[in-house]
Amino acid sequence: KEMRNAYWEIALLPNLNNQQKRAFIRSLYDDPSQSANLLAEAKKLNDAQA
């Protein structure tokens, strides 16, 4: 469930391009235990690109 939530949050971040989203989501599938960390990194990048 945590992975699914992280997937959708990443997919809906407005300032990431599709390539960036795909990279984060690929990492999510590679290591679901890192969901919270990956989401935090994606949000950080999203904010930096705002």
Rank of each mutant, 00 (worst) to 15 (best):
R26D: 08
N46W: 01
E9P: 02
A36G: 11
L13Q: 04
A50I: 13
P32I: 07
S27D: 11
K1A: 14
D47Q: 14
L16I: 07
S33A: 11
A42M: 01
Q20N: 02
P14T: 06
Q49V: 11
L13R: 01
A23G: 13
Y29Q: 08
A11C: 09
E41V: 09
K43C: 03
I10Y: 00
D31G: 03
W8T: 06
N18L: 14
Q19S: 14
E2A: 02
S35A: 06
Q34N: 06
R22H: 09
L16Y: 00
S33F: 08
L12F: 13
Y7D: 02
I25Y: 09
E9A: 13
D31P: 01
K43L: 08
N37M: 15
A50Y: 12
E41G: 03
N18F: 07
E2P: 05
P32H: 03
I10A: 01
Q19F: 11
A48R: 09
L13T: 01
A36V: 11
M3G: 07
A40M: 14
E9I: 13
K21G: 00
D30I: 14
L45K: 07
A11S: 13
R22W: 11
K21E: 01
A48W: 14
F24I: 05
P14E: 08
A42T: 01
A36L: 11
S35C: 04
E41Y: 11
L12A: 12
A50R: 02
I25V: 06
F24E: 00
S33G: 12
S35K: 15
L39G: 02
S27W: 14
D30E: 14
A48Q: 13
W8V: 11
E9C: 05
L45R: 03
S35L: 08
L12C: 06
A48L: 13
P32V: 05
A23T: 13
Q20I: 05
N18S: 15
A48S: 15
L13P: 00
L38K: 06
A6R: 05
L39H: 02
I10K: 00
K1Q: 12
L16Q: 00
Q20D: 03
N37G: 06
F24D: 00
K44Q: 10
A48D: 13
L28N: 01
Y7M: 12
L28E: 00
N15A: 14
R4H: 15
L38H: 04
E9T: 06
L39E: 02
A50M: 13
N46V: 01
A42C: 03
S27H: 13
L16R: 00
A40N: 10
S27L: 13
Q19P: 07
L38T: 08
S35P: 02
N15R: 04
L28K: 00
P32M: 07
P14C: 03
L13E: 00
N15L: 06
A50G: 14
D31Y: 10
N46F: 01
M3I: 15
Y29F: 11
N37F: 11
Q20P: 00
L12D: 06
A50S: 14
M3D: 09
I25K: 02
K1P: 12
S33T: 09
S27E: 09
L39Y: 05
A36S: 14
A36E: 09
E9N: 12
K44A: 04
E2M: 04
K43G: 01
N18Y: 08
K1F: 13
A23K: 15
Q49I: 14
Y29A: 05
L13V: 00
I25C: 06
D47N: 12
Q19E: 15
K1I: 14
A50F: 11
A50V: 14
I10W: 01
N18E: 12
A50T: 07
M3Y: 14
L13D: 01
N17E: 07
F24L: 06
E41I: 12
L45E: 03
K1E: 15
K44F: 12
S27G: 11
K21H: 02
P32N: 04
K43S: 05
R22E: 10
N46R: 01
P32G: 04
N15Q: 05
P32A: 07
Y29C: 04
P14H: 06
P14W: 05
K1R: 04
D31H: 13
N37T: 06
N17V: 03
N5T: 14
W8M: 13
S33W: 04
Y7Q: 10
I10T: 01
Q34K: 10
N46Q: 02
A11G: 03
K44P: 00
N37S: 06
P14Y: 04
I25F: 15
E2Y: 03
N17D: 04
R22M: 09
R26T: 09
L13W: 03
N17R: 08
L39C: 03
N46K: 01
A36M: 09
A6L: 09
A6Q: 07
K44M: 13
Q34M: 15
Q19G: 12
K1Y: 07
A42K: 00
I25A: 03
L45M: 10
E2C: 04
E2T: 05
E41S: 08
I25N: 02
N46S: 03
N15H: 11
E9Y: 14
A36T: 12
Y7F: 04
E41R: 06
K44E: 08
Q49A: 12
D30G: 09
R26F: 05
L13F: 04
K43V: 09
L45G: 01
D30P: 02
N17I: 04
D30Y: 10
I10E: 00
L13C: 03
R4Y: 15
L45Q: 10
S33D: 04
Q20K: 02
E9L: 03
R4P: 08
N5H: 11
I25P: 00
N15M: 07
Q20H: 02
L13G: 00
R4M: 15
F24P: 00
S27F: 09
A50N: 13
R26N: 04
R4E: 15
A11Y: 14
M3V: 12
A23P: 01
A23V: 06
E41K: 12
Q49R: 06
W8Y: 13
N17P: 02
K21D: 00
Q20M: 04
L38Y: 08
L39R: 09
W8S: 08
A11L: 14
Y7A: 04
N18C: 08
N15K: 06
R22T: 09
N17Y: 07
Q20C: 03
Q34Y: 06
A6G: 05
N5C: 08
L28A: 02
Q20G: 01
A11D: 04
S33N: 09
A11Q: 12
D47R: 11
I25T: 03
N17T: 08
A50K: 06
A11T: 15
K21Y: 02
A40C: 04
M3L: 11
D47E: 13
N5Q: 11
A40H: 11
A48I: 15
Q34W: 06
Q19M: 07
N17K: 07
Q19H: 10
K1W: 05
K44S: 10
A23S: 14
A6I: 10
S27T: 11
A23H: 12
L13K: 02
D30S: 13
A48F: 15
P32D: 03
S27M: 14
L38F: 04
L16F: 01
N46Y: 01
M3S: 07
K44T: 09
L12I: 09
Q34A: 08
P14G: 07
